[in-house]
Nucleic acid binder design. Structure first.
Lengths: 325, 325
DNA sequence: AATTTTTTGTCAATGTTTTGTATAAGTTTG
DNA sequence: CAAACTTATACAAAACATTGACAAAAAATT
């Protein structure tokens, strides 16, 4: 059973209905007849739900649309429901994706999760963080999860780390949680057979892996076959990985600007080792600090989420064009 | 990817019919006439089927299409049915199902996977490695997976790394794959509410995280609530994590013996920072190299898989004893 | 080969259960 | 006070159950 770390039960039934897509009356009926959810009550008797309840109802809704009988699945755990939907998604080829939630709604939902997730990071509560992430993926979908929640959250963590509100361990803990989530995200979006390959890492001296992790997840979502190597690797090692996998792209994340020129040196060495046939992409908060070197070795500047996606798409098209001839 | 949720998911006849390809009426007829399946009933009398029933009906359908008489095969076991279809050698692709295998078998299966997985590591094929791991978890179960496959495999990788057959990237790639597998393993074995907490990491200078990863997974499987921090963290950071989480144990992995005394220094500092109320456990290939320091700060020597498990059990008992009073 | 018997899939009639929705009357909230 | 929430009850469509029958296909018998 997932540990319910929801000290903040806070949604009324109308909100729950909107977010989960289950009508208010039906939410109550499911509770009365099958104990599908167990909201606490206000002193006046109004139902108050947690965001786990919302995730639950959303999954139940999806499962019933898939042909499952509500009476049979109402009492399953959140994890079991996720399993159920996941195994179904494999057999179901056509998924019209009837998402009623608009982008505007998603934006607000993501905002909400952002606060909660950052709270969990600050409190060093890995369990809660993972739980919030899981629910957010269900509610937002992989795409919006990354764009609206993960990306801003990691930026925030990066900033707060500099001001001293967060310690390095906070970042380590967060990467650890996100790394284990990779599995869900990947399964939601199995990569095609002829996918272009990519290596993601950070050069030596760069210990912060959140940026690299984000890049890896984004690339996987864009249909790449990504091998993630973690942080702080010397040029030779990274180049070896590129060779081994026949990757056609290498993405590096640089989030900390150091005064010594180790990073610049490493970048030059990497470029030399991998040659011109492999696309080199460098991103991260501190990438602009090395603009000189990057220009020298012919690496474009990444301007943000959308830009990175665009570059990925271009490279993928290029790859398919050359591999299909 | 084939995670069977046998006891959890239950289906009504409509779903069963869709999935198995046998019409509802016929499903009932087969039950009435030949007891082909034995669904339980709801209080209202509706039939409720399991995943196994669906698999069974699928096979029966296939066999009858192949010319077999339903009356003759209706009562065969699932395995017999699979045999039947297999020997028929028609254009059929079947999914492997649950099997009861003895420990002796498991040992051989693990051996087999060991070879395959090491091959995937050597070939730097993350996809294949992950796929083998997934299959192994399903086939062996979490426990045997760790004890018979993961543990020996990581030892082997450690050795081969020293001889130069493997590069550091191989290890990085492997940790990356294992890290994302954490999610499955954890879900197979959800941790209890009042579980003792543990921090797992490696001290500064220790870049190899495979040992720590294994320790973290083992502890989780033993019912601990583990926060994994990754490798190469300074004493203050590790101690801070212990404080934040109120962990009652800290496990460090040391797999590389350096001549400088950084590690020894860090160990002393960590011990000082966390005090005597938090159990400190140090393991890893190179732990014995630091026997002097470890004895000095009162840390027992880990002698292997079984020993580690025993220590975990002792600490857990101790924790429950103190927290229940 | 022709006839009878058995097997097997399908269907119809009739009643029950499940499940989403609706209405009415009272209560809480802001 | 109005909007939103509550409970309780009711209702109808969809889905399921049971029984029994029927005809084509397969097997057995003459």
């Amino acid at each position: 059973m997932t540990v319910t770390n929801d000290d903040t039960a806070q949604y009324l039934i109308r909100t729950v209905s909107k977010r989960s897509g289950v009508k208010s009356d039906l939410v109550r009926a499911w509770e009365r007849r099958y104990q599908a959810v167990s909201p606490v009550r206000t002193s006046g008797g109004h139902r108050v739900y947690t965001d786990q309840d919302i995730a639950r109802l959303k999954l139940l809704n999806q499962a019933t649309n898939n042909g499952h009988s509500i009476s049979q699945i109402a009492q399953l755990s959140l994890d079991d429901l996720k399993q159920l939907i996941k195994t179904e998604a494999v057999t179901n080829t056509l998924q019209p994706e009837l998402n009623q939630t608009s982008i505007r709604d998603k934006y607000h939902i993501a905002e909400d999760y952002n606060v909660k997730c950052y709270g969990a990071v600050l409190a060093f509560d890995a369990q809660a963080l993972e739980s919030h992430f899981e629910n957010a993926i269900v509610e937002l979908g992989s795409e919006a999860f990354i764009e609206l929640l993960l990306s801003p959250l990691l930026s925030k963590i990066g900033e707060r780390w500099k001001t001293g509100e967060l310690r390095p361990v906070h970042e380590h803990m967060t990467s650890s949680v996100i790394r284990s989530l990779t599995y869900i995200l990947r399964n939601n979006n199995p990569c095609p057979a002829n996918a272009p390959r990519m290596i993601v890492s950070t050069p030596i001296g760069q210990l912060h892996e959140l940026g690299a992790l984000l890049a890896a997840i984004m690339a996987e979502l864009c249909g790449w076959q990504v091998t993630y190597l973690g942080a702080n690797l010397p040029a030779e090692e990274i180049a070896a990985a590129v060779k081994y996998t026949h990757a056609c792209a290498l993405t590096l994340s640089i989030s900390f600007a150091s005064e010594d020129n180790i990073v610049a040196k490493e970048l030059r060495r990497i470029k030399k080792l991998i040659g011109n046939d492999v696309a080199l992409i460098v991103g991260g908060r501190a990438a602009s600090h090395y603009q000189g070197v990057l220009a020298e070795i012919g690496v474009p500047n990444i301007l943000g989420y959308a830009h990175f996606k665009e570059i990925l798409k271009q490279l993928a098209d290029q790859h398919h064009a050359t591999s299909n001839t």
